[in-house]
Design a protein around this nucleic acid. Structure first.
Lengths: 292, 292
DNA sequence: TAAATAGTGTCTTTTAGACAGTATTAT
DNA sequence: ATAATACTGTCTAAAAGACACTATTTA
């Protein structure tokens, strides 16, 4: 080769390289953390303590620590800070990159590129405020992002009458009740993208099990699909289908103790199998009509 | 609400905000631009003119212009610069975000977060070197990323004997022939991720048509699938399947002029239809075995 | 007992795929 | 004529979905 790929040349170059010679762009991670509570899909949100958007709900997130962590590590760190979970509990949480958002003025302070992550978590305790957030809690998604649409201005971005305990975090105020509506920044759009990703992902992966505990019944698994997709599924056909897909679930040999049941036989318990993709997939019903 | 979401408070805050108060992270976009040439999948690459990795092939890309463009705009700009295409020609190119890569030391200069994009392009003329690249050209992907695996060191990352004209750009040297192998930075991994995305995407979207011209035959469309998937498909069943999926293709009423054919009837010509998702999808063959 | 639920049987429709066959064109 | 290619017909197997049915448990 004409010019050697010399490490000496690279060392010389790096010695005189100035990382601040370029216009700055900040890099953050934001996490769309989803969980199921009482049969409804909830998303982890924090109440912003400082400007901009002080007092508004936002997705948990923060700046990536330059030179010290990868994007995946930053997302896991932010999620751990807001949920108060330790490493063992986080192991049961599915975390994947969702996409990056970098319009020049999405943050009024400066150009901020946010790398969004999507998390599926089993039922978790109330969230812990961490970092510079005034409060943190699990919010029902349909109150913020109706039908998974991008954030549209709503007078009351979520309802207070139902399940008040679900907001958690002990914030005395209710952010978003000032009429401005929706999440801070472009987090409404990020949430909508995360919801659509979640709906698609459980079609061809077994990640619906990530919303459940170590063992679960087929009915509980079906309720995950019904909640995420927002559609009722045929119990009998779903049951047979799940058991027919190789590696989706495996039997524990146990049966449910059925607290709160209204009758019926004890359901068998299953745990997640070893498949990483479902074949054949569980397709959402009624995709023909509106999808073109 | 206790504290007003006052725009005055926000203005005060922004007036004293220093964008350089944080450790810098650079943000770049890199593009995995794929096209078909002579029945083989090619990726656009540039020969690096400067450090680091001088003389090595890399994906086209560059720094995002802080405060002046979105990520999508930056990717389109970089693609236009390297291909020399005007806005009209770029309109026929599919461009979507692939994912972001941000390990702290993936670039030896500083912490660089790269937002990768994936492009599908019809057959294009030889690339134009742009920016600080010494050369640019279309490289056969199997020479760089065998079987879509992450970049593994190979003595000769692409072969010189076949289709020498495909490299374009007029570079006298052949980057990568120094025994170091593979693409610069982590671009081998990004390319592998882009190839897997492309293979998956043509299953459930009509984007295979983005590799073809305005009108095409069913056989040409089948050759796109066979090349991207690396598997032979049954011509008769493929033909019927494509025509049965609503909105995938629509007839132009014309028939092919068949230059270079070895006999057979004139094939009918089609153009891309209005569907954005294929239902039912065209699934890759033989997914059961190795996918778990 | 009645009601609710877990799980299975069975039938129909849709889709994928194997394979064969016919028509059209180049050499 | 022969070979190659563009399509089409037909049959089988897999899968999705509608519906009915039995068994088990709670109230």
């Amino acid at each position: 080769m004409a010019e050697p790929d010399g490490t000496q040349a690279e060392r010389d170059f790096l010695a005189q390289y100035d990382p601040r010679a370029f216009d700055p762009i900040a890099v953050t991670v934001d996490v769309v953390a989803l969980t199921l509570r009482a049969g409804r899909l909830h998303v982890l949100a924090v109440e912003r303590g400082g400007q901009p958007f002080a007092g508004r709900w936002a997705l948990p997130g923060g700046f990536v620590r330059a030179g010290r962590e990868s994007l995946d590590e930053a997302a896991a760190r932010e999620l751990a800070e807001e949920t108060g979970l330790d490493a063992a509990a986080l192991d049961r949480v599915h975390l994947e990159q969702l996409g990056s958002y970098g319009s020049p003025h999405r943050d009024p302070r400066m150009h901020v590129v946010s790398v969004a992550y999507l998390a599926f978590a089993p039922g978790l305790p109330d969230a812990q405020p961490g970092g510079d957030a005034a409060g943190a809690g699990w919010l029902p998604v349909e109150a913020i992002s109706p039908a998974g649409q991008p954030d549209e201005a709503r007078p009351r971005p979520f309802e207070q009458g139902r399940r008040t305990g679900a907001y958690g975090g002990g914030a005395g105020r209710r952010p978003g009740h000032d009429g401005s509506g929706g999440l801070a920044f472009d987090h409404g759009r990020i949430l909508a993208d995360g919801l659509e990703r979640a709906r698609a992902k459980i079609e061809y992966t077994p990640l619906a099990t990530a919303f459940l505990g170590e063992s679960f019944t087929i009915t509980e698994l079906r309720e995950v699909y019904e909640t995420v997709w927002g559609a009722a599924l045929h119990a009998g056909n779903f049951h047979r289908k799940v058991l027919s897909v190789p590696g989706f679930v495996e039997s524990t040999g146990e049966t449910d103790t059925r607290p709160g049941s209204r009758g019926g036989p004890r359901a068998r318990l299953y745990r997640a199998g070893d498949a990483r993709l479902l074949h054949p997939a569980l397709l959402r019903p009624d995709r023909e009509a509106g999808v073109r």
